[in-house]
Design a binder for these strands. Structure first.
Length: 425
RNA sequence: GGAGAAUUACCCAAGUGGUUGAAGGGGUCGGUCUUGAAAACCGAUAGGGGAUGUAAGUCCCGCUAGAGUUCGAAUCUCUAAUUCUCCGCCA
């Protein structure tokens, strides 16, 4: 949620920043509503004050044996007269909320406007692997190595899904465990959240009301619930409606959950295999920080995500996203993108974002600073990482001429010492 | 899934219609005493949102949430959420 005070004080600035995200908005009606709100609020409150005063005088007068029926009548009259204004006020407040709740977060000043085309690669690690043989894509490799079963997945579930089998399952699990152990080393707290969340959680994360259609809703449960599209949705709601202490910040969490998304429908032929499915595994990091601490936390998250890919020895790059390519709730986003040889492109394995106080305002997530002032936290998140892109990248980047795949050293301890995956046919 | 009970400030907890911005504990902070500590004693400390104002202040809303009854609600009614207990079912 954008602070309405910011809009009132500087509507042009907010307008200009939102334009960078491709949002063309005018605040004239919002500003007008706000003026109306103030006028009516004052009226409503002063009537309330008078009613309170009169009512408060009743006990004393009663004790003195005086007749109070006149006061009853007067207060009733005041209350009745006030009713229409109270309703009007409620309507205006709802209208204001409806306008604010759909606005995306403001992008940081330093971001380029526009979409993907203006993303800038700011760091590249490693080199494109060169193969002296005809390299396979990850779908072929999964098949020949016996790691994934797409056919049976289609049978028991449907399209957009897959089954990790045997060593595939072990590799997937090893990757996740590797991530988990790294985060533990860095002092992040491990969280295993429920996968079924309530509406409020989606709202606070900023997914709702705009993207209600993008998640899976459960039937037969009330109030309605959805399955999380990312662990961020759960983690960022952990401290909803809480006031934290400044000395407890930053709070650093990570969680492993599958992520359930409808976007697999946007399948394109090049996104074969496990590049985009209805369900994928991801370890997610979230930090709650002070206002002052959020830039440093962002750097840390980006570095942490990058470090994971680096330790796997994969070729990857970091992109600074243009304003329009940042998520709805985010002020800035850097993507860590791993190279997928068969597609000859870089695919996102992590999105590190700073929501600043946007989510915190929605969820009333606050902290008391040293002077005792209550402020909104900043929330940040980064995948660390999504396996569904890492897994194919490992297979494709680490494949050898004989059709085997060399397991990255960092993963070997988590693979029970297995160093190479050999073709089974 | 069925039945019952609960939800008050950092924590426990009193409070069943009117000076309740909420008794009493505990905690926390400060002090006395002590070589230091503990104990004891003394004192301080009650959240949050909003309106107005340069400020001090004044006012509105806050006792899980929402709605209602009433001149007036923490207190009565309804709805919901959560927690606990019992029964059922089960990995």
């Amino acid at each position: 949620m954008i602070d309405i005070k910011l809009i009132i004080e500087n509507p042009e600035k907010v307008q200009r920043l939102l334009a960078k995200k491709g949002f063309d908005v005018s605040f004239s009606s919002l500003l007008k509503l706000n003026e109306e709100r103030k006028t009516i609020l004052m009226k409503v409150e002063s009537s309330k004050a008078e009613q309170n005063k009169l009512s408060a005088s009743v006990p004393l007068l009663k004790k003195e044996g005086k007749d109070v029926s006149g006061i009853f009548k007067k207060v009733k009259q005041l209350s009745d007269d006030n009713k229409s204004d109270v309703l009007k006020l409620e309507k205006i407040e709802k209208d204001i909320y409806d306008i604010l709740v759909v606005l995306p977060n403001l992008p940081d000043e330093d971001l380029l406007p526009g979409g993907k085309e203006n993303n800038k690669v700011i760091h590249t690690y490693g080199k494109k692997p060169v193969f002296a043989f005809k390299a396979k894509d990850h779908v072929e490799l999964c098949e020949s190595l016996g790691l994934v079963d797409y056919q049976r997945a289609a049978k028991i579930s449907g399209s957009g899904t897959w089954i990790y089998t045997n060593l595939g399952a072990r590799l997937e699990w090893a990757i996740l465990n590797f991530f988990i152990s790294e985060h533990l080393k860095d002092g992040y707290e491990f969280i295993i959240p429920p996968h079924i969340l309530n509406y409020e959680s989606g709202l606070v994360a900023g997914q709702f009301p705009k993207f209600e259609e993008d998640v899976f809703w459960l039937e037969g449960i009330s109030p309605r619930k959805f399955i999380l599209p990312t662990a961020e949705t759960a983690l960022v709601n952990l401290h909803r409606n809480e006031i934290l202490k400044e000395e407890d910040l930053p709070k650093k969490y990570f969680a492993y959950t599958p992520c359930y998304r409808k976007e697999a429908g946007s399948y394109r032929t090049e996104e074969r295999g496990m590049i985009r499915g209805y369900q994928f595994n991801k370890v997610e990091m979230v930090q709650y920080t002070t206002e002052e601490g959020s830039n440093a936390a962002f750097e840390e998250l980006v570095q942490k995500a990058a470090k994971l890919v680096e330790k796997l020895g994969l070729h990857f790059q970091i992109s600074k996203l243009a304003a329009g390519d940042c998520s709805h709730s985010m002020a800035r986003t850097y993507d860590i993108e791993v190279y997928v040889p068969s597609m000859d492109i870089f695919k996102e394995v992590s999105s590190a974002s700073n929501a600043r106080d946007y989510q915190a305002r929605r969820g009333m997530i606050r902290y008391k600073d040293k002077s005792g002032k209550t402020k909104f936290c900043h929330t940040l998140n980064a995948s660390g990482l999504a396996t569904s892109r890492v897994f194919p990248a490992i297979l494709e980047q680490c494949q050898q001429e004989d059709g085997s795949v060399k397991i990255p050293e960092a993963l070997v301890p988590f693979m029970g010492g297995i160093k190479v995956l050999k073709p089974i046919k």
